[in-house]
Design a protein around this nucleic acid. Sequence first.
DNA 1: TATATAGTAAAACGATCGTTACAAAACTAG
DNA 2: CTAGTTTTGTAACGATCGTTTTACTATATA
Lengths: 201, 201
Amino acid sequence: MGRLQTFDNGVVVQAARDLFWDKGYEAASLADLEAATGLGRSSLYHAFGSKRGLFDAAVTDYLETVIRPRLAVLRAGTTDASALLDYFGSLAVATATQAPDSVQTGCLLVNCAAGLAAHDDPTRAVVEGYRIELSAALRHALLAASDAEHSADAVLEERVRTLASLSMSAMLIARVNRTEAIALLNTASNQVRAWFPGSSR
Amino acid sequence: MGRLQTFDNGVVVQAARDLFWDKGYEAASLADLEAATGLGRSSLYHAFGSKRGLFDAAVTDYLETVIRPRLAVLRAGTTDASALLDYFGSLAVATATQAPDSVQTGCLLVNCAAGLAAHDDPTRAVVEGYRIELSAALRHALLAASDAEHSADAVLEERVRTLASLSMSAMLIARVNRTEAIALLNTASNQVRAWFPGSSR
DNA sequence: TATATAGTAAAACGATCGTTACAAAACTAG
DNA sequence: CTAGTTTTGTAACGATCGTTTTACTATATA
């Protein structure tokens, strides 16, 4: 054994993730990453191999830290539409209450979809995986809210797409017009209420 | 007067637009732009001043050449939902039939929303203008399709947001999963049919 | 045809990019 | 305390970035 690493990989990855989230992969330079993480390139390359390696770690952290906790409420064992309303409600609150200068606007993976994913197969796979996971969670919550039998598969899938669409486009628009992003999320909530009139919230 | 310009600004801008559309602003290098347009940097800088000047011309061309013709069908004087069905139908067809290696996937402005727009005010203004224009066109078509009185303003705006959302997220997802992008557009069409059962298509 | 003006070609610019090499520093294990 | 191993700071790398300069060519005008 030799000298021990003085920094925690987790906090470094989170700092890098916020930078990538804010500026995108290409626009985030190594100088920026040094400043954001407080580490020299030496340590960054030693720990993560490359800029891309750090980015991949950031994306993984984003999925685990940001996405999955959000989707978890959709998997809660509710028997009405409250899980869906919780999901869109908390997303709207988070969008509304974040500091005006917060760098965590929109969604890292949505940004990847418009940027990297078009020409980078691994990134495309990650983004597609996120889309599938989001759809599955919404589908689960929609099934839980409905009285099982009286909704055909086709209409279920339409509803999944509508909600996934509102969710993603809200994250997209959040970078341009926060008020409208919140309105999109509220539209999703209203749509859920229209589908399930007897829901608790 | 001296020597005359041998190239047509319009075709050069279109070539540049397709490159920006495909790779994004930052990833499109001047070497790429030279190759795509067939011009040297000399001519490009003489005609457009800077890379950004060429990009702005490309965005303007994109709005006039791609966006506005698409939105035009929403402004046609129909009295049912056919304009909306035409819009989403033609978008779905265009997405479905384009060559697999086509560089014109998704939407240049949607890509800008996720990338440049977060840190560049002029770009953000352009993207926001696009969103407003799209919403206005959808609102116009929705009003034309409804029997005027029996739809409240609130539900109209919800419908505008739902359709705008499906439109934008389809363009976003087109870069990752073309099949799903088409499905989103078909979901929009089905939603329109559900709202206006007596529509012609 | 002479001249002025404007378009084009080529090269070099300084800056910044991600990456690597090297050596000093730090610390564990024996 | 020493030996051995790992982390870190510094500097330089070659490549590429957008931009500018310089010189040359082509052509409309007079």
